[in-house]
């Protein structure tokens, strides 16, 4: 589910009053984004799910501290990143993922889509965590440049420049797969 900014603001205010229905809706709205950010960092579906849950638990325990609900998405994204960093500080190891574990897209052309997904995810995984997070947030619907800049600690006016560099690096990683990507459409 895509997260509308105004809907999130309303849900955060209700959640701060202890409305569990609002909390549940907020999770439903943001879980895809948070899971994707974490998955692209840890590359392990089960671990990503656990860390996504941890992110939301920590988020709701600290929700009273949110003074500007319009910054909620940026706040929770930073929280997700910090939770991953905390995890690595404790575990002190990176594990790789088997792309066999990526959920298979449904539909007639599921296999082709999965193949294309694998190629792009594989290239994405070779980028730095910073590039991965930047690309994930920037292409998530409704994220403003200032929100992305806030999380990535870069001025909003420079976000597109950083994004451009990250995209060029991604393209470099995808060299040699052009025909596959175009033919599997």
């Amino acid at each position: 589910m895509k997260a509308g900014k105004h809907a999130i603001i309303e849900l955060v205010k209700r959640s701060q009053r202890g409305d569990e229905q609002a909390m549940s809706e907020l999770i439903t709205m943001l879980k895809g984004l948070i899971y994707t950010i974490i998955f692209r960092m840890v590359k392990d579906p089960e671990l990503s799910k656990d860390l996504t849950q941890d992110t939301f638990i920590r988020f709701f325990l600290k929700i009273q501290k949110i003074k500007y609900p319009e910054q909620t998405r940026a706040w929770i994204c930073k929280m997700a990143r910090n939770i991953v960093y905390d995890y690595y500080r404790k575990a002190k190891k990176h594990e790789t993922v088997s792309f066999e574990e990526i959920p298979e897209p449904k539909g007639v052309s599921g296999l082709e889509k999965r193949h294309k997904k694998m190629i792009i995810q594989d290239a994405l995984a070779r980028l730095t965590e910073r590039d991965q997070m930047l690309l994930t947030m920037a292409y998530y619907e409704g994220f403003s440049l200032s929100e992305v800049g806030d999380v990535m600690k870069i001025p909003a006016k420079n976000v597109k420049v950083y994004l451009h560099r990250a995209r060029l690096r991604l393209r470099k990683e995808l060299e040699g797969h052009k025909n596959e990507l175009l033919s599997t459409r």
């Binding site: 999770i27 879980k31 895809g32 984004l33 899971y35 994707t36 998955f39 990503s48 799910k49 996504t52 849950q53 939301f56 990526i102 959920p103 997904k117 792009i120 994405l124 690309l135 994930t136 920037a138 292409y139 998530y140 619907e141």
Partner: peptide
Amino acid sequence: LATVSDPGQI
């Protein structure tokens, strides 16, 4: 890049 994955019912 715009596609997000679903962690399931959490």
